[in-house]
Write a protein that binds this DNA or RNA. Structure first.
Lengths: 221, 221
DNA sequence: CTGAAACAGTACCGGAGGTACAGTATTCCG
DNA sequence: CGGAATACTGTACCTCCGGTACTGTTTCAG
């Protein structure tokens, strides 16, 4: 029972890395079992077919990703009571997490599946859609919270701003792969952070131009 | 000779659609030839193997994409002499082009290849990298040109801002696929446009008689 | 008329996904 | 302590597909 879970986890880890590097169809079961040190029978004991492997792999990925976001957002709130500052800190932390991977970011399984959608069943595709929606809704809620205290400087739809974070992360992962430069992800998250700063940070417009009245900008790095 | 090019083009079109929907490995030659109405011999007359198909397909895609960007940027310059206004117009046009596809955007072949990189040889991967670099450099040049007349309101690296456009487009294509909502691409390009507007648009408060005291970057860190 | 271009036809190989079981070692639980 | 579930191994087999290697056959331009 305990040992079975361990093998199962090893298979999922190897499979995920292979899928992110070669795609789902090009990920051969024979290669997975060779690397995991098991036989084909062992593989099919844990997963009835390749589709079930994809399904469980995706669930695992979504959970892991949720934990990362939860952690980053929670740590942001611990470090500042102001919702804008907390989110800016969270984005900085997210940028750091993204760049702290030794061999570069392995890739986003959601993006990977979207580019091979015809290979997967509705159940898998629905799970990808629901997880993307959940992330977008979460970011949207954060933005609403910020706007209560910091009026936005552009009448842009917050849904689009919320979506933009996922888009920038996924897009920068692709660019980091294309150019073989892991730092692109961190820099893009920081670029999005600049956007948030510009969108919400109050301008000294109304205030009297005193030399030290740099307002919020002084505290925002 | 003429007929051969036509068949070749048909194969490439069918193959590209299949690769973007199912991935490269899952795209079977037998399916391509069935849809194209030719035999396997006919296919291998035009392409010596699947890898050559990928290589020519990618070249074709990069050329087509370059044409789209050229067109959009040129039309922007025709409609305004101000570099900022011209770029904002170009972005609006780009957003429209992206949403004007009947069945949603079929996907970015570069992104698709990046998520299956281990399936392709160095030649293909180098071509993806060089085309991404070319796009980034082009956007970077536009930003430099804008900055000559419109000082940026945030000391962000222009390389990152230039990268961001590609990232947002690629990321939003993924989101549009994940959520089955083609409008996301257009909205994300427009969100990036808001960022450009916020970054370069002059604020009335900054207008001070002395030229060197207009350092916006000094107040908004 | 001829020869190159543009295919079609046929046959075959190897690898991979998947099925079907039969057997075995380990471990947990009563 | 013993049976039963758990966690596999081993073997055999089937089908599909990418790819190779040929030998025709049709079309059309020079």
């Amino acid at each position: 029972m305990r040992k079975g879970d361990e093998t199962r986890e090893r298979i999922l880890e190897i499979a995920e890395m292979s899928v992110l590097a070669k795609g789902f169809a090009a990920t051969s079961i024979e290669e997975i079992i060779a690397e995991a040190g098991i036989t084909k029978s062992g593989f099919f004991y844990h997963f009835k077919d390749k589709n079930e492997l994809a399904h469980i792999m995706l669930k695992r990925y979504v959970c892991a990703n949720d934990r990362v976001f939860d952690d980053v957002i929670e740590r942001g709130h611990q470090l500042s009571d102001d919702p804008l500052q907390a989110f800016l800190i969270s984005l900085k932390l997210l940028a750091e997490v993204m760049s702290d991977l030794p061999n570069g970011h392995p890739g986003c399984l959601i993006a990977c599946i979207c580019y091979q959608e015809r290979q997967f069943d509705r159940e898998v595709l629905n799970l990808t859609a629901r997880s993307v929606e959940a992330w977008n809704a979460r970011f949207r809620a954060i933005l609403d919270n910020i706007a209560l205290e910091h009026p936005p400087r552009d009448p842009i739809d917050f849904d689009d701003v919320a979506d933009m974070l996922s888009c920038v992360v996924d897009g920068s992962i692709i660019m980091s792969k294309a150019l073989n430069d892991p730092s692109r992800i961190e820099r893009q998250v920081m670029a999005f952070r600049s956007f948030i700063k510009l969108l919400f940070s109050s301008t000294p417009q109304i205030r009297v131009p005193l030399p030290n009245s740099t307002g919020v900008s002084g505290t925002v790095n």
